[in-house]
Amino acid sequence: MPDEVELLEFDDRASAITFRLEQSSTPDFSDPKLRYEGPDPASVLTGLREGQYHFRVRAIDSEDQPGAWSEPLVLHVEFMAPGQLAFLLVVGGVVACSTIAAIITGFLKNR
């Protein structure tokens, strides 16, 4: 998940009026957390920390009858390697600071 965003799309059944999306840190959903409940057949996830997450969804029909849970979806969130990140941040910092310094000194010398 390189950009820290994921779109979960559900099966848009004609009979479903509501979807219930749950998230858990364990495969058996012993600690379920309601992530979304409503009519939309998709939900965008952002802001997850590194780790493994489990998701399941079920439809609820017009008579308030819930369907079966979907097969769990496992999402593995992994950020960029710290060494690579540190290198790129240092490069970014050096280029940004040098650019600002070059403009200020250039301006002061030529005004």
């Binding site: 952002t46 960029m80 970014g92």
Partner: peptide, 25 residues
């Protein structure tokens, strides 16, 4: 955010930190 999207408040979020320098440049 702390409960459901905690990484959005984190100091160490790699793509976000890179985005600062990248967007600035």
């Amino acid at each position: 955010l702390s409960r459901d999207q905690p990484a959005l408040l984190d100091v160490m979020m790699p793509a976000a930190l890179l985005a600062i320098f990248n967007n600035m440049l």
